[in-house]
Design a protein around this nucleic acid. Structure first.
Length: 371
DNA sequence: TCGTGAGCCGAAGCAGTCAC
DNA sequence: GTGACTGCTTCGGCTCACGA
């Protein structure tokens, strides 16, 4: 086992790729809004795989560097000889919702997870293009700093990569400043959350999409029962705040939902319809009036809230999930937002040595006017 | 005022493809 | 086989905004 670890360690090659180039993220307060709009433009608002050349043509017109989104955030696969960019959970989130901090976290996760697939002219190391970022977050931010991101600086990142034998490049400064900027606008500090929030649920689906597609490139397939191990080996849990009983239970429920919806096929209305008809030939096909996404919540834990396409509602119910309307999702999101902001404010007070003498629940009760 | 770092820009170099 | 061309990566100089 130790030998295997050292073999992987020694064979791993970290290259900066185009990450030494700048992307024009805009103001810090904008988060990853530029990436959000680029995904929408590149996919032309359609939730289906798009040829890489077509995606690039669309982005070029906007005057952006297209390599950062397609080589670091999205997933590539050559299908029938054509390089394609795959529609997956990250694309679903970008196309389904306006830009929000939740999108930023899913996007930052996609970057840190660093599974972007293959295209014809890609070098071998480009399949995992940001392993340096992945390792920095796992080995420093999570393990050493315990998600206290005060120590995350460009100097710290530069120090980390340039002293690591896996890093093979002439320079490290530009990469370090760019990564530091990205980690802060993507709010990496929130990755240490212990409870399975909505962004974490979306990241789990994204991780499964990427891991399964990545395996398919090598002609490997996995059984549903192997998904949990697949996630564990990918260090998904370490990258998203660690594992606990609540997350373990949530993972079991979410894998069942992911499988019930058909994996990445859940994003195709036709594929979902075929799946329903296959399982229930008497099923009456009904078009949905409201095209907005629905929320699938698990009966045992309403915190497990997964946004799904409206045509997936019946499959989600079959998997033991309750399906709520987009408006109900907004209400839940607002409540989660208030709670999150309150927790952040208390964390700041705590950091400054100011000890509040009431709990979050008591504080929320007052701010909600005693409701 | 000064230092830092994002953003812009372009040059250099490598690898693959294609025409001759 | 060779050279031109293309696509892409890598690097770094420069400008400008911002905060101390």
């Amino acid at each position: 086992m130790l030998l295997l670890f050292w073999r992987i360690f020694l064979e791993e090659v970290w290259k900066p790729g185009s990450f030494t180039k700048n992307f024009s993220w805009g103001r810090n307060s904008n988060g990853l809004v530029e990436l959000h709009s680029i995904i929408r433009a590149g996919f032309n608002d359609a939730l289906e795989d798009v040829p890489r050349t077509e995606f690039r043509e669309r982005i070029k017109k906007s005057g952006h560097t297209e390599y950062i989104p397609i080589n670091f955030f999205l997933f590539n696969r050559t299908i029938a000889g054509v390089d394609m960019i795959c529609a997956d959970e990250l694309v679903f989130q970008a196309l389904s919702w306006d830009h929000s901090p939740a999108f930023d976290k899913v996007a930052l996760f996609a970057f840190l997870f660093s599974y972007v697939g293959k295209w014809k002219k890609a070098a071998a190391y480009q399949r995992r293009p940001a392993l340096w970022a992945n390792a920095y977050v796992l080995e420093r931010v999570a393990s050493k700093y315990n998600w206290n991101t005060k120590s995350v600086t460009a100097d710290d990142i530069q120090n980390f990569v340039q002293n690591d034998p896996r890093y093979k490049a002439e320079t490290s400064r530009k990469l370090a400043t760019n990564l530091n900027f990205l980690l802060h606008i993507g709010k990496v500090q929130d990755f240490g959350e212990k409870r399975p929030g909505r962004w974490w649920v979306d990241c789990l689906f994204l991780a499964l999409d990427r891991l399964i597609e990545d395996s398919l490139i090598d002609g490997r397939t996995y059984r549903t029962s192997e998904y949990i191990n697949l996630l564990s080996h990918s260090k998904f849990f370490e990258l998203t705040g660690g594992e606990n009983l609540e997350k373990q239970l949530a993972t079991t429920h979410l894998i069942r939902l992911y499988t019930a919806l058909g994996g990445r096929d859940r994003l195709s209305e036709d594929a979902v319809r075929d799946k329903i008809l296959q399982e229930e030939p008497q099923f009456q096909s009904m078009r949905v009036n409201d095209s907005r996404p629905r929320g699938a919540t698990h009966l045992t834990n309403p915190r497990i809230l997964k946004s799904i396409s409206p045509f997936c509602a019946d499959l989600a119910k079959k998997a033991g999930f309750d399906v709520i309307s987009p408006d109900e999702m907004d209400e839940m999101q607002a409540a989660e937002f208030i709670r999150g902001r309150t927790e952040s404010a208390l964390a700041v007070l705590n950091e400054k040595g100011i000890r509040p003498n009431m709990t979050i629940e008591e504080l929320l009760k007052i701010t909600r006017g005693g409701a």
